[in-house]
């Protein structure tokens, strides 16, 4: 299961992308995709804060904030989520910021080729999985050598499964705030 988050201020683009991602007849097929879409980058950020996200695809030119700023925030919130910009805009400044600040994995131009875009998504997800697997193995080795405790490892795993679960939010009167 891969969690895709797509942000574009044009709903038609979101619909097209959702169809494309979920249609396994258009090759290559994505592995069990779950697609969430937003027209507002602010709403998308709220979602990212407390949901599991594997890949974020964002338009560049949007109201409120541009794609580079949005993905930079996403990176702060979810460093492990892969990031792609999908845009008709090709201004050099924007692309440079997207690469240097937001650390995007791919820049895909609109109009996209269905096949190429899906291939890019699969590549990026595979790359991300490789990174995560790498880190997991390294952690395991460290744990076996006693550098980090099993408990810490378990905490990291839990946090990845359910973002926010390892942080308890307290209200002013000392009660525990549950997620809505």
């Amino acid at each position: 299961m891969s969690n895709l988050l797509i942000v574009d201020d044009e709903p038609n683009v979101l619909n097209a992308l959702r169809r494309l991602c979920q249609n396994s007849a258009i090759l290559p097929a994505l592995p069990d995709p779950s697609v969430t879409t937003f027209t507002s980058p602010l709403a998308a950020l709220k979602h990212v804060a407390d949901h599991k996200v594997d890949l974020v695809i964002s338009d560049y030119r949007m109201p409120d904030m541009d794609g580079a700023v949005f993905l930079t925030r996403v990176k702060e919130l979810r460093p492990d989520a892969a990031r792609i910009i999908l845009s008709a805009c090709t201004d050099m400044d924007g692309i440079i910021r997207a690469i240097n600040h937001a650390g995007i994995f791919r820049f895909v131009s609109k109009p996209w080729s269905d096949h190429d875009l899906k291939a890019s998504i699969i590549d990026v997800l595979a790359h991300r999985n490789l990174l995560l697997e790498n880190r997991r193995l390294a952690d395991e080795v460290r744990s076996q050598r006693g550098v980090i405790s099993r408990q810490q490892l378990e905490l990291e795993r839990l946090e990845m499964e359910s973002p926010g679960i390892t942080q308890v939010r307290w209200s002013e009167d000392g009660g525990v705030l549950l997620q809505d």
């Binding site: 097209a16 169809r19 249609n23 008709a88 609109k110 996209w112």
Partner: peptide
């Protein structure tokens, strides 16, 4: 160009989906 590319992008992609649905 930017304004045209957006609609072209989703119409083109939808055509792809439509092709596969039709098939």
């Amino acid at each position: 160009a930017h304004e045209i590319n957006n609609p072209v992008a989703f119409v083109l992609s939808n055509l792809g989906s439509l092709e596969s649905y039709a098939a």
